[in-house]
């Protein structure tokens, strides 16, 4: 019930009331990703420029000649979002230094899905982070190429059935473990890395604000539930996010200058992953022993994280 306790504070009073992503966008009913994008905009505010990758969020928000965006926004291609954002950042930096534009601080944000971040966009992202641009990169991870019809990516979790890694008579869906993108970003030695889930809006907003306050590159990995691709009812985006967190499938943590901190929203004891798998059509084919194997991996990964948080905690 922690979520409700948080809301004793009356959430609307804590949140930027401006809708920087307008209604009328064409996201599927119950899209968890567009909700996360909406909350991100609220957290970052108006002095933000967004570079977006090709993908669901691009298509649904920028149907020419209209736009859902109320912040400056640019889409160029699929794999290069971090490079575009780095160019916007460099351009604005030079223009501000040379007195050619307003002397106001503007945060540049790159946003992409799991494919645009972890697969095709990986090189541009690695380059931009390594170069130390003052920008945030947010991966809205819905765990497959949803825009093109639910094909697997390196963000698809083990066992999930997708249109290019389908469950079949001799296959149990995705055969590989999900790429741990947040840790890859930690390995870049950037100042701030965090995982967020819109089911935990206060944690979400706090981490976005933190990333905004960092002068340098930050990476945010956002759990983005997709009712269409995960074959789950449209009202489940928030409850599914909560289950992903409570089962440890998607642990909430942050890494600031190499120091780990597990979010206080994480439960003392993780729920079994079955609770998270059961309501989703993409996992429905999994047999008990297959779920057990995934459970074991989730336990190990979570243990690794909590150990890091113990030994690499803030102040050490």
């Amino acid at each position: 019930m922690s979520i409700v306790e948080n809301f004793d504070l009356f959430a609307p009073r804590l949140i930027n009331r401006k809708e920087l992503l307008s209604s009328g966008h064409r996201a599927c009913s119950g899209c968890g990703e567009v909700l996360a994008v909406r909350l991100m905009c609220k957290a970052l505010g108006e002095n933000t420029v967004i570079a977006a990758a090709t993908g669901c969020m691009e298509i649904i928000s920028s149907m020419f000649p209209t736009t859902a965006w109320r912040v400056p926004w640019i889409h160029v291609a699929f794999e290069n979002t971090a490079a575009v954002a780095s160019g916007v950042e460099a351009g604005l930096k030079a223009l501000r230094r040379k007195g050619k534009i307003d002397d106001r601080y503007v945060k540049v944000v790159g946003m992409a899905g799991d494919g645009g971040t972890m697969d095709i966009g990986m090189q541009a992202l690695s380059g931009a982070m390594e170069r130390g641009h003052d920008m945030i990169f947010v991966c809205f991870d819905n765990e497959a190429y949803m825009n093109t019809g639910i094909q697997r990516s390196s963000g698809t979790p083990m066992g999930a059935s997708t249109t290019t890694a389908p469950a079949g008579k001799v296959s149990s869906g995705q055969k590989t473990w999900k790429k741990n993108m947040a840790e890859i970003m930690v390995a870049h030695g950037i100042p701030y890395v965090a995982t967020v889930c819109p089911s935990y809006p206060l944690d979400f907003i706090r981490k976005m604000e933190k990333a905004k306050s960092i002068k340098g590159p930050s990476y945010i990995h956002c759990f983005s539930m997709c009712p269409t691709g995960w074959r789950s009812p449209s009202h489940t985006a928030i409850s599914m996010g909560r289950l992903a967190v409570e089962t440890g499938v998607f642990p909430l943590f942050e890494v600031e200058d190499g120091h780990y901190r597990v979010s206080p929203d994480m439960p003392k004891k993780l729920r079994p992953i079955r609770d998270y798998f059961k309501p989703q059509g993409r996992f429905r084919h999994l047999k008990d022993d297959e779920i057990d194997k995934i459970q074991e991996r989730v336990n190990i990964e979570y243990k690794k994280l909590t150990e890091k948080a113990k030994f690499l905690k803030t102040g050490n």
Binding site: G24, T66, T67, A68
Partner: peptide, 10 residues
């Protein structure tokens, strides 16, 4: 597109 939020037409 220089009409921010114009998607609300839809």
């Amino acid at each position: 597109v220089s009409d921010p939020g114009s998607a609300s037409e839809y």
